[in-house]
C-alpha cells in the first residue's frame, strides 16, 4: 500500500499506509492522526482537512478544482501549497507523499 507522512504543526510525524483510491483525509481520520478534522466527510464542503503539500510532491498531487480553491481561499492559514486532503486520492504514484498540517482547522 502507498504511504503518506503526515506532519503535525508541532512537528510530530505519522507514517500511514493508505489504500489505493482512499483520500489523504481518510488516511488521517481513520487512523486517528490528529490535526485533520474532515467535518464534511470528504465533500469538499468544510475545509477542515486543510494540509500543506510538500513542495516536492506538488506536481504529482495536481491542482485544486474551482470548488476546492474557493473553500481554501477563506482559510486564514492558506498558502500557495495548500490543499484539501479529501480531494487527493492515493495512488501508487503518490507513495511517500508528505503533507503538513496548519496550526488549526477552521
Amino acid at each position: 500500500m502507498p504511504s503518506v507522512t503526515y506532519i503535525e504543526h508541532n512537528g510530530t510525524e505519522y507514517r500511514i499506509e493508505v489504500e489505493d483510491g482512499l483520500s489523504v483525509m481518510r488516511g488521517a481520520v481513520d487512523n486517528g492522526v490528529p490535526g485533520i478534522d474532515g467535518d464534511c466527510g470528504g465533500e469538499c464542503a468544510c475545509a477542515t482537512c486543510h494540509v500543506y503539500v510538500d513542495e516536492a510532491w506538488l506536481a504529482k498531487t495536481g491542482t485544486p478544482s474551482e470548488q476546492e480553491a474557493s473553500m481554501l481561499s477563506f482559510a486564514a492559514t492558506a498558502q500557495p501549497n495548500s490543499r484539501l486532503s479529501c480531494q487527493i486520492a492515493m495512488t501508487a504514484e503518490l507513495d511517500g507523499l508528505v503533507v503538513r498540517m496548519p496550526e488549526a482547522q477552521h
Binding site: 481561499s73 477563506f74 486564514a76 492559514t77 496548519p102 496550526e103 488549526a104 477552521h106
Partner: peptide, 21 residues
C-alpha cells in the same frame, strides 16, 4: 453569491484566524 460573497467574506475571516482565537 460569488464573486462578491468571496471578496467580502475574506475581509472578516481573519477574526477567527488561529492566532486571534
Amino acid at each position: 453569491d460569488p464573486p462578491q460573497h468571496d471578496e467580502q467574506r475574506k475581509v472578516v475571516q481573519p477574526i477567527v484566524a488561529p492566532a486571534n482565537l
